[in-house]
Structures are given as C-alpha cells and as structure tokens.
C-alpha cells in the first residue's frame, strides 16, 4: 500500500513536471524519423534495394531479408541503448534531490514509513516509469520495423529489457548521488560522466600495460571492474539483436552489482542522515 502510494507519487511527479511528456515526444520523434528514413524494396523475400536516411544499403545481392533487418535493427539497438539511458537518466535525475529537499523530506519522513521503504518505494516507482518509457520506445521501433519488413525479431525487445537493466544500475548510482548531495545537476551529470569514463576503460588491459606504476595499473583495473561496462554492454545489446552469442555475463553482472552496491549505500546514508 505504502509502496503503491510512492509509485503513484513518482508517476504523478513525472506527469506534472512534463518528464513523461518529454520522453514520449522525443521517443515519438525518433520513431517518426525511422518511419520516413527507412526505405526498403523487398522482392521475393530478398532485398532488391533499400536505404536508411537516404543512404543505400551496400549489401551483396540476394542477401536474405532477415539478415538485412536484424543488421539494421542492431544499429538501432545501439542508438536506443544510448538514447534510452540518456532520456531515462534525465527523467529521473531530480527524484531524490526533490525528496530530500528541506521542508519536503520532513513531510515524508514524519509519516510511519521506514526510510529504506521510502527510498526503495521511490526507486520502484522510477523503475516502473522507465520500464514504461523504454517499452514505448523499443516497442515502437520494433513495431515499425516489423510492420515495414514483415520480419518479427523479438530479440529487439529483449535488448529493450537489457537496456532497462543497465539503466537500473545507473539509477542506483543516481540515488546515492542524490542522497549525498541533494543536487539534481550532479545526479544527472555524474551518471553521464561514468558512462563516458567507462568507455576507454574497456581497453584497461592495454592502458595498464603501459602504465608507469603498479598503483596506476591497479587503479585502472579497479575502476574497470567497479564501474558499469558501457562499451561491453552496448556491444552486447547489438549482439543480442543479431542473435549472435558471446554475451558477456560478467559485464552485465558487475554492472548490476555496481548499481545494487550504490543503492545499498544510498539507503545506508539516507538512514543515518539528520534532516
């Protein structure tokens, strides 16, 4: 009941602050662009001619349409991975800072709700919100491509699920930043920062090999294992859509552990804070 109230509250906030509307508009624009940009001429189950954003596909003649579609979808999945996380972080960045704002936190905390329940209730609310948004975005892209080509590649939806999981990890981090700093700009900027920082770290072995001290090398390795694996997971999303194996379970698992760790730390800090 109390968690439900918090979920409803999260949705209300997203509606009233137009974050939901913003998400829907940006997602719709993306889908609209896709609808007009994707031109396929299919003859006898193979692609006779096709273009994306006006550029003709450069594929050997007689390529089966499934291959063409999944290849195209994987490119979209990579875009969705970036766009989805970008939008979701933006949409939820003010959540905790608004909650812990002086004068507001008093109203929530003076009710008979435990602090972990309060924070986790809001977390669940944010997750449902982002799930719905991603379902709209990925589901929409999936429908457009499938209807246009007649190829129903359900793995694209699975990629949506994976993007949601990665986002949950970032959300945990945002909660920690929010509880510690109470600042919306920081809660939005820092997830982007670690997203970008994690990119070169994908080559941590090479960086560490040329590091001039052992400490530096260990730091690079440590950071790599600690932070979300943005590059690997982006690649995995593409692999998943293409139906190729070789997904890195470690990348996903360590990313989720990072998120869970941050969320647990957020709850612990929230629990101890005096407001």
């Amino acid at each position: 009941m109390k968690v439900w109230a918090l979920v409803v509250d999260t949705w209300r906030e997203a509606l009233a602050r137009y974050t939901l509307l913003g998400f829907v508009i940006v997602s719709s624009l993306f889908m609209l662009m896709l609808t007009f940009a994707l031109n396929l001429d299919i003859v006898d189950g193979t692609l006779a001619a096709g273009s994306l954003f006006g550029r003709a596909f450069d594929l050997p003649g007689g390529t089966p349409i499934e291959t063409v579609v999944t290849t195209g979808e994987s490119a979209f999945a990579a875009m969705l991975y970036g766009l989805g996380i970008f939008l979701a972080v933006f949409a939820t960045g003010s959540q905790v800072p608004n909650l812990v704002h002086r004068g507001t936190v008093d109203l929530y905390l003076s009710r008979p709700v435990s602090r972990p329940a309060l924070l986790l209730g809001r977390f669940v609310g944010a997750v449902t919100l982002v799930l719905a948004n991603l379902a709209f975005l990925c589901g929409g892209v999936f429908l457009i491509i499938s209807l246009k080509t007649g190829v129903w590649n359900l793995r694209l939806l699975a990629a949506g699920g994976m993007i949601a999981l990665v986002f949950c990890s970032y959300l945990g981090f945002m909660y920690l930043i929010g509880v510690l700093s109470g600042s919306t700009p920081l809660s939005i900027m820092l997830p982007y920062a670690i997203y970008v920082l994690a990119m070169p770290l994908a080559a941590h072995d090479h960086i560490a090999a040329v590091a001039d001290s052992r400490l530096a090398a260990w730091t690079v390795h440590g950071l790599y294992w600690l932070l979300p694996k943005s590059v690997e997971l982006g690649r995995d999303v593409v692999q998943l859509v293409m139906g190729k194996g070789g997904l890195s379970v470690t990348a996903l698992a360590t990313t989720l552990v990072f998120g869970l760790g941050c969320l647990a730390a957020a709850v612990a800090v929230f629990q101890r804070r005096s407001y």
Partner: peptide
C-alpha cells in the same frame, strides 16, 4: 507534524 517551512510537492 507541521514542519517549519514545509514544502509540499507543488505538483
């Protein structure tokens, strides 16, 4: 509890 300087969620 009626807090001092309370700030209800404006939405």
């Amino acid at each position: 509890y009626l807090p001092e300087g309370h700030r209800f969620p404006g939405y």
